[in-house]
Every structure is written in structure tokens, then in C-alpha cells.
Write a protein that binds this DNA or RNA. Structure first.
Length: 808
RNA sequence: GCGGAUAUGGUGGAAUGGCAGACACGCUGGUCUUAGGAACCAGUGCGCAAGCGUGCAGGUUCAAGUCCUGUUAUCCGCACCA
């Protein structure tokens, strides 16, 4: 019995107490000792919105906090940083609406977030805190841009953007919902603007291949691979009859070349203009092209089901393998932005071509046997055999591909080709609250980079953050800022007024964390060399093809120019499921099902809140919130709290609980690593139930439980540890417990006895029996004998520790 | 249409091919209380039972929630990528 006076569990008091101690002692600051084994745990730094933390943040943060706290107890030097992804639209919109400078809004929001995160007791490396809006930080965001520009990976191009006709504003894709403006419901059209682009496509291959070297959860890899969309095939030239010109097509099915019965080029294809004099129905073609151009993105996808198109009368092409003359069409089902903007159509073996050919009565020639082309296109590439295909006849699809590609290359009419779906990254925003792009436009020299010595190019102060009527950044209203001189020729030049997207600052923040106040470079080489790559990065699936891909791109680029020491930024990536409202729907203000972490912490404390978020269900699955469930976790902590009244003076793990304790250590240690927090917590609950069933536990038993519980409920564990005086240190300075396999053994186990696979009874047997001994033991049991009396035993399957199945 | 995931009590969910429903929530009854939305104790998949039970239909196996084939529903992502 502890001689401490018993006090009821009061989370608000002890949480505050320990947060102050940790802060005062700098308990979680990493050491400068680079000989220690390191662990770099990372969570996506939050966007400090005005709404404050939602319940999703603590789910990811607590999960990684658990890993980091455990790592420290295991002797690792741990970096677990936090910062602010603070540029971006919502802050700017708030600033516009309330006429407050976004910088002030941002500062206020960060303070609020910080207080909330501290309230939850995360063991962040606060000394590494960064904000993307800090000039000291965006200095190097701009520096990376200069490097991209220098290497030709940043370029300016005419690109269509989403334009709200009512707000007269360019919108991000995320702001366009069902073809209308998210804010005003106005019509959104495509408007061509000159935009900064980043050549991420240059890294398509590396981004795909790099996935084989990292430990990302499979669905992230699959999604990135699909997004990058590598496909292998061939480009083939089809001569336009009576000219020297070719239509060059891309196909993944060069094996079906003999089945090409027409061609389709995109409405934007240059050859249409070039041969407009030959096209006898040019008026009709022109009208179709205008129609296609007028269609908004929304309409184009809406109308995707029904194929449309116009034949280019007067133009035909020659199939290079059989010299057949085939018609050429234009249709918007062929995209100008993919491949060569032209295809050979093989209706017998492509669903889209089939549909198109059926609609317009074009010939369908079967070249792969195995299907029924009177019903459907036959697209199976595994089983088909080539027919009607000259020298390819009799080959499998796979062999035919190889054979025809070789032939094309030998004849000089085509070649193997890899294509990607990935598009270059539109990097401009006509907005105020972002990093200025450090480039000027000179009348003589064109786009010229600022010299590095002029970085950071500060975002100038401004009174009005609204875009201009023509959709330019409000920075254009600052002539004294815009008008400058060309660093190259000294002549008059204008600064770029577009700013960078929110994804810029977040593409390299994990590098900056290793050396956040370095004025000279991204981070010092020694620090990067020690800390990078991030060992474990947890975040949301919604960033898989955005932030996660962008930052891998930047990192690979930085690696290629020798600015970082490793080719991949993240060794391991995991992902948490979303927390839904209590009604099972997505949490949102409009649904009125939002749970505020402040309210929960006020009611049950941070530890119970953290505990519940980890216990509520499988970590990677979406899960509805349950306030009752959260209260249940509070009850569990109260139950543990009350254990202090039955702790004996025995120092070691008790005989009575020895097995339960070691089972729990094993289960909890393993489950934390697998992020199976729910079952880890269940194991601790079972242990507590075992303590209660004996009405007694030793100090050693309690110590083991508290160490296991500490990563999830750190304040609680620290407090009880100290209250019971379990050691002279604080619990976070303790070693992680190890389990002893030999302590897991049982003397006797209950096994099930089955007859023909049906359970008939359960018997207790010595745990040490092997397969044969167990079978024998079971057969000699009186109750079992009764069951099989008069029957012939044909076979006995015995599984030690589990069951005996008697076949008779 | 393509890709991914999921499907188990009233609810959230457990279960290396080996006793389905661990651990919780909720609910029912009880104890103690001036009181209970506190605590503690007992019960709780369905069925009176024999039995039946992991979306549905088959299959493999001594044994299937788990493996295979097919199928349905829901969620997420992509959207004519040749």
C-alpha cells in the first residue's frame, strides 16, 4: 500500500504540471551527439486555419508521438519537429473579408494552434519550429526555385486556368465543385493565362522507380504509380497520302497495327490547319473544333459517354505495315495533351475505338482471335493469338508486340516509346499570400532570375489583397515594387507578380527542420547527413498525389544538384484514416457534426482523448467518432489510477501477474510498431483487468504497465510514476521494457476437441505436449473415449495449444 | 469504365488456415447510495431447443472470417491517357 495520500484523478491539473516540467527541462530536445542512433519522425505540418485544430490532427500526431516517445526510451536521438504551412488561400480570403493583414491572421492562428498542440502534450522538437511565411524560410524556397529555373525545370507557358465569371477570379482546381465556383456558384470557364510551370514530368521515371526503394504503404505506391501513369508502347508514322507528311501516333498496342482501320487526331492538332485546303469539308471540321474548344472541362467529362467527331474528307493515311488507305477523323476523345495527340484506331481491340466505329459505321477488322467482335472489342492481351496480321500471324500478343516494334525500328517507321500521364505542375497563383517568384521580365532579355544575393525577395506590404478584375495578383498594383531593373542588362524590367502555390513551402520543410536557423543554406550538410532521410512520415491519403509527390520531386532534384545527401526524402510512409462524425458522415460545419478537441480535453483531459483516438479502431481505416467511447477511455484511466491503492511493496514483477505482464509487453511493443494501437490498448486493458481480478499488484507490475501506457498517456504515466516513487527518475527517462519469452509459457492449456471438425468438448492438457503426445493424451481422456465409443478413428490431427480434431 | 479499400453482434472493432465475437461502447438485472449520467457485481451473437451463425453463391482443406473462383453493396481516388 502506498503511503501517499490518495487523490482523485484530475487530468487538468496533472497535464498542465507535466507540460510545464517538460518545457522547462527541454525534455524532448534532440542531442547534438551524432554518434547516437537517430530517429526522425514526421507528421504533416498543419495549415493554421482560423478554425483551430480538428480531431484529425491529434490522430496522426498522437500516433507519431507514441513512436517517438518509445524510440527515446529505446535510446534513440529523436527529431520530431513541428511547423506551419502558413501561406494559402483561406487566410487570404479571411484577410480580404475582414480587412486584416494575412500576416497578422497567420500569427494569430499559429498562436492558437500552438496552444492547442501544447495542450495535447506532443513531444515535439519545438526548437525546430518553422513557418513557410517567414522570410528566413522562404528565402530558400525561392532559392530552390532559382535552381529549378537555372536547370530549365521552371518555365513559363500558356495554360488554361479555371476562371470564375462571376467573381472574376482564377480558381484552384479544388475550388471548382461540379463545374461551378465553390464560393459564389458562378459559372467557371477555362481561360488561357501565362503560367509558371515546373517540369515534374522530367522526373516521372525517377519518381516511379524510387518507389521500389522506400517503405511506403502499398496503397500510396499504387496511387502514385497510377497517377504518374507509365505506359509502354510505340510511336508509329502513318504517311498522309500524296504528301511527305506523317501523322505520328502513340499506341500501347503496336501488335494490332494490321487492325487499324482509321485514325483520329485531336481537334487541336496542327495538321488540320496545315491541310485545311485539302479538307473538303473544312467548314464542318472547323465548327466541330470550335465546339470542342467551347466545352468547359465539366461538359467534356459529362459528355464523355457519347462519342462525337468529324471525318477529314479529302485526307487519308497509309497504314505502314499493309499499305492500306484509311480515313482520318478528328474527335475530342483524343487528347492533344497526351502522346502525340493522334491515334491509330483499332476498333476490334479497343473499347473507345469500337464505340466510335460502330457509331460512324467504320470497318472493324479482327486481328487478335479469342473474342467476339460482333459484340464487343476484344481487349484481352493474355490469351489472344494474332490473325489477319501478315508476318505476325500465330504469335501471342506479347510476342507480336516485340516483333512488330523491332520491325518498325528496322524500317524506320516507328520506335518503342514510354509515355506518362503525369502533367507538368502549374506553379503560379495570381494571389498575394504566397512566396514571390524571384524572377523579372526584361524587355530585352526575357525572364531573368534574380541573383541569389537578392534573396529573400520579400513579399511587400499592401492594403488590398483582392485580385484585379483581370485576375492578376494584387501585387500588380504596386508599381514601385513591380518596376525594377534587369539584373542581366540593367534595363527596365518588371517583377513577376504571380506567387508560388501552397505546395512550394511544404515541398522541403522536412529538410529545414534539421537546421532551421541556417542563414546560408537549406541546412548544413552534416545535419542533413545525420538526420535525413525522414525515418517515418505519417500523413493523409489526400496528399498522395500532391504534397507527397511534389516533395519527392523537389528532393530528387535537390539530390541531383548535390544539395541534399539522399535520393528519397522519406524512408517510410504510413497513413491514418479519417475521423467521421458520430453519424458516420464526414465532419463538416454544414452537417453540424464537428467535434472540437478543446471541448473533449476539457471534459476528459488530453490523455483520455489521445487514448480514445488510438483505441477507436484500426488506425488506417476511417472511423466514426463516439463521445461515449471517449468517456470509456477516461474510465479506463480512472481504473488504472485507482490501482495505486492495491500496489504492494514488492519491487519486481509479481509471480501472480508475471505471465500477463510479459504478454502485455510483447503485444504492446509489437503493436505500436505496426500502428495497431487499438489492440495494444486492448492488451493493456486486459492487463488491468487481470490486476483487478487479483485485487493486488506489485510495484514492478505497475511500473511495467505505466511504461507501456506512457507513450499514449504521457502526463498520466509521469504523474503516477512519480506519485508511487517507482524510480528516482521521470518515466520518460526510463528504458522501454523488454519481455522474456520464457515467462510467456503456461503449464496447462485448454484445448478444443473436435469430432469431424465440430467442437464437442474442451479439456485441459499439459502445455508441453507435442503433436503426437497431445493426440494420445486426448484419445485417452475418458470423455473423449465416450464420444468416440464404437467408432473407428481414422485420423487424428493435433495442434498443440489449440485443438485436437478426430476423424471417425 | 479503371484503380484501391471495406463488408464480422445493437455500436466501434478482435482473431500467424486451428475454440469467431478479444477489448470497449451501449443495453439488462443487482449491490451501495438522499440521488445517479458515480462505483462495484452479474449478464449480453441468434435460437425454447437440437442447432445456426463473419454480404451472397460455389470451391480447396481434417479444419475457412482468413485461401481460390464468381457475385453484390458501400466508401475513396482517377476520369476517353490510345
Amino acid at each position: 500500500m502506498s503511503n501517499q495520500e490518495y487523490q482523485a484523478y484530475n487530468p487538468s491539473v496533472i497535464e498542465k504540471k507535466w507540460q510545464e516540467i517538460w518545457e522547462k527541462d527541454q525534455s524532448f530536445e534532440p542531442k547534438d551527439d551524432f554518434t547516437m542512433p537517430k530517429f526522425y519522425g514526421l507528421i504533416e505540418f498543419p495549415y493554421p486555419s482560423g478554425n483551430g485544430l480538428h480531431v484529425g490532427h491529434p490522430r496522426s500526431n498522437t500516433a507519431m508521438d507514441i513512436i517517438c516517445r518509445k524510440r527515446r526510451m529505446e535510446g534513440y536521438n529523436v527529431l520530431f519537429p513541428i511547423g506551419w504551412d502558413a501561406f494559402g488561400l483561406p487566410t487570404e480570403n479571411y484577410a480580404i473579408k475582414n480587412k486584416i493583414h494575412p500576416e497578422i491572421v497567420t500569427r494569430r492562428n499559429i498562436e492558437h494552434f500552438k496552444a492547442q498542440l501544447k495542450m495535447l502534450g506532443f513531444s515535439f522538437t519545438w526548437s525546430s519550429e518553422v513557418s513557410t511565411t517567414d522570410p528566413e524560410y522562404y528565402h530558400f524556397t525561392q532559392w530552390i526555385f532559382l535552381k529549378l529555373f537555372e536547370k530549365g525545370l521552371a518555365y513559363k507557358a500558356e495554360m488554361p486556368i479555371n476562371w470564375c465569371t462571376s467573381c472574376k477570379v482564377g480558381l484552384a482546381n479544388e475550388e471548382v465543385v461540379n463545374g461551378v465556383c465553390e464560393r459564389c456558384g458562378g459559372e467557371v470557364v477555362r481561360k488561357v493565362k501565362s503560367q509558371w510551370m515546373l517540369r515534374i514530368t522530367e522526373y516521372a521515371e525517377k519518381l516511379i522507380d524510387g518507389l521500389d526503394t522506400v517503405d511506403f504503404i502499398e496503397k500510396v505506391k499504387v496511387q502514385q504509380r497510377n497517377w504518374i501513369g507509365r505506359s509502354t508502347g510505340a510511336e508509329v508514322n502513318f504517311r498522309i497520302k500524296d504528301t511527305d507528311d506523317f501523322i505520328r501516333v502513340y499506341t500501347t498496342r503496336p501488335d494490332t497495327l494490321f487492325g487499324a482501320t482509321y485514325m483520329v487526331i485531336s481537334p487541336e492538332h496542327k495538321l488540320i490547319d496545315k491541310y485545311k485546303d485539302r479538307i473538303t469539308n473544312y467548314d464542318a471540321v472547323q465548327e466541330y473544333r470550335q465546339q470542342a474548344a467551347r466545352k468547359s472541362e465539366f461538359e467534356r467529362t459529362e459528355l464523355a459517354k457519347e462519342k462525337t467527331g468529324v471525318e477529314l474528307a479529302g485526307i487519308t493515311a497509309i497504314n505502314p505495315v499493309n499499305n492500306e488507305e484509311i480515313p482520318v477523323w478528328t474527335s475530342d476523345y483524343v487528347l492533344s495533351s497526351y502522346g502525340t495527340g493522334a491515334i491509330m484506331a483499332v476498333p476490334a481491340h479497343d473499347d473507345r475505338d469500337y464505340e466510335f466505329a460502330k457509331k460512324f459505321g467504320i470497318e472493324i477488322v479482327e486481328v487478335v482471335s479469342g473474342g467476339d467482335i460482333s459484340e464487343n472489342a476484344f481487349t484481352d492481351i493474355e490469351t489472344g493469338i494474332m490473325i489477319n496480321s501478315g508476318f505476325l500471324n500465330g504469335l501471342s500478343v506479347k510476342d507480336a508486340k516485340a516483333a512488330v516494334t523491332k520491325y518498325l525500328e528496322e524500317q524506320g517507321i516507328g520506335e518503342a516509346k514510354v509515355n506518362f500521364k503525369l502533367r507538368d505542375w502549374v506553379f503560379s497563383r495570381q494571389r498575394y499570400w504566397g512566396e514571390p517568384i524571384p524572377v523579372v521580365q526584361c524587355e530585352k532579355c526575357g525572364y531573368v532570375a534574380l541573383p541569389e544575393s537578392e534573396l529573400p525577395l520579400l513579399l511587400p506590404n499592401i492594403d488590398n489583397y483582392v485580385q484585379t478584375d483581370s485576375g492578376e495578383s494584387p501585387l500588380v498594383n504596386l508599381p514601385e515594387w513591380v518596376n525594377t531593373t534587369c539584373p542581366h542588362c540593367g534595363g527596365p524590367a518588371k517583377r513577376e507578380t504571380d506567387t508560388m502555390p501552397q505546395w512550394a513551402g511544404s515541398s522541403w520543410y522536412f529538410i529545414r527542420y534539421t537546421d532551421p536557423h541556417n542563414q546560408k543554406e537549406l541546412a548544413s550538410w552534416d545535419k542533413m547527413k545525420y538526420w535525413l532521410p525522414v525515418d517515418w512520415y505519417n500523413g493523409g491519403m489526400e496528399h498522395t498525389t500532391l504534397h507527397l509527390l511534389y516533395s519527392r520531386f523537389w528532393h530528387k532534384f535537390l539530390y541531383d544538384i548535390g544539395a541534399v545527401p539522399c535520393p528519397e526524402p522519406y524512408q517510410k510512409r504510413t497513413s491514418h484514416g479519417m475521423i467521421l462524425g458520430e453519424n458516420g458522415e464526414k465532419m463538416s460545419k454544414s452537417r453540424g457534426n464537428v467535434i472540437n478537441p478543446d471541448d473533449i480535453v476539457k471534459e476528459i483531459g488530453a490523455d483520455a482523448f489521445r487514448l480514445y483516438e488510438m483505441f477507436m479502431g484500426a488506425f488506417d481505416q476511417p472511423i466514426p467518432w463516439s463521445t461515449d467511447g471517449a468517456r470509456g477511455c477516461y474510465r479506463f484511466l480512472e481504473r488504472v489510477w485507482k490501482l495505486q491503492k492495491m500496489v504492494t511493496d514488492e519491487k519486481d514483477v509479481s509471480k501472480a501477474h508475471q505471465r500477463s505482464v510479459h504478454v502485455a509487453i510483447k503485444k504492446v511493443s509489437e503493436d505500436y510498431e505496426k500502428m495497431k494501437y487499438n489492440t495494444a490498448i486492448a492488451a493493456m486493458m486486459s492487463l488491468v483487468n487481470a490486476f483487478y481480478s487479483e485485487n493486488s499488484l506489485s510495484r514492478g507490475d505497475m511500473a511495467a504497465l505505466l511504461k507501456l501506457l506512457y507513450p499514449v498517456c504521457p502526463h498520466f504515466a509521469e504523474e503516477l510514476w512519480q506519485k508511487l516513487g517507482l524510480s528516482g527518475r521521470m518515466i520518460h527517462e526510463e528504458k522501454w521494457p523488454e519481455f522474456d519469452e520464457s515467462k510467456l509459457a503456461l503449464d496447462e492449456v485448454e484445448i478444443a476437441v473436435q469430432i469431424l471438425g465440430k467442437i464437442k468438448l474442451r479439456i485441459n492438457v499439459p502445455a508441453s505436449l507435442d503433436r503426437d503426445a497431445l493426440a494420445e493424451y486426448a484419445l485417452s481422456n475418458d470423455s473423449v473415449k465416450e464420444l468416440i465409443a464404437g467408432k473407428q478413428v481414422r485420423k487424428v490431427i493435433a495442434v498443440p495449444g489449440s485443438l485436437v480434431n478426430i476423424i471417425c
